Computed example of a mutant assay.
Amino acid sequence: MSLYQIRVEDIDSNIVELSSYKGKVLLIVNTATTCFFTPQYEGLQDLYNKYKEKGFEILDFPSNNFKDAKGTIDEINEFCVKNYQTEFKRFKKVEVNGDDESILFTYLKRHEKGLFNQKIKWNFTKFLVDQNGKVIRRYAPMVKPEKIAKDIEKLLNNNK
């Protein structure tokens, strides 16, 4: 199975095939709106602003696994846009661990280098994916988005 065979649901209930992101560098993040790390939305938006024209996308997957993504997806989206002016793609809430875990997060955890299938420990775990759909790196929640910029640039520059 390839990352590009996975389908997810966006906030408008549209099915999105991840194959539509072929050729893009992706940062896939499980997020929450009432978490210690919620202010990272600002840094994520900064990354998006800086690299979106160069082939970079952020895929935001709210998750209530840790009880910090309360409310409907519309309320979550409104919060993010109002408080952090987010413009990157947001998807329906997903489970990132457990029996009802999203196939996307199962895939990401199974294909990350060195940490095979390790549970996601908290919100704002970030997965960097290259233009070919390969999971390059997993970042812990405490890693601020600006610390990922060099890795993003390296991938974007490798594609030239």
Rank of each mutant, 00 (worst) to 15 (best):
E57V: 10
K89L: 13
I15H: 09
K154D: 11
G98R: 11
Y21T: 08
K113G: 01
V129W: 06
K109S: 08
N49H: 12
R138Y: 02
N65W: 05
D60G: 10
F88G: 07
P141D: 00
Y84S: 07
L128V: 06
W122L: 02
E153W: 05
D12P: 00
I103P: 08
N14R: 15
D46Y: 04
S2C: 01
C80K: 13
D10T: 02
C80T: 09
T106A: 14
K154E: 14
I152M: 03
V96S: 12
G43E: 00
D99K: 13
E101I: 11
P62Y: 04
V135H: 07
A69N: 12
T125F: 01
G55A: 11
L156E: 08
I15N: 12
K22C: 04
Q45P: 07
N64Y: 07
I152K: 01
L104I: 13
K126G: 05
N117M: 01
N77K: 15
E78P: 03
E87I: 05
Y41S: 04
F105W: 10
K93S: 08
I58A: 03
M1H: 02
S19E: 14
A32Y: 06
C80P: 00
K113E: 10
C35V: 04
I58K: 01
D60W: 09
K160P: 03
Q131Y: 07
K52N: 14
T72P: 06
I6M: 04
T33R: 10
F66K: 12
G43D: 01
Y139L: 02
E75H: 05
R7P: 00
Y84R: 07
L27H: 06
K54E: 15
K70H: 07
I28W: 09
C80F: 08
Q5W: 01
F88S: 06
L27I: 14
D68M: 08
K92Q: 15
H111K: 10
K67S: 14
V143I: 15
D68N: 12
L27M: 13
Y139H: 04
V81A: 09
P62G: 06
F56D: 02
D68L: 06
Y21P: 03
K119L: 14
L18W: 05
I11P: 01
E57G: 06
I152G: 03
G55I: 08
P145K: 00
P62A: 05
N83V: 11
D68Q: 15
L47E: 10
A32G: 10
D12R: 13
K119N: 14
L156F: 05
G133E: 09
N49R: 13
S13D: 15
N117H: 03
K154M: 12
N132E: 05
P39A: 13
V29Y: 04
D99P: 08
S2H: 02
F61R: 05
L115D: 09
G98I: 13
S13C: 13
E42V: 04
Y51L: 07
D151N: 02
F127R: 01
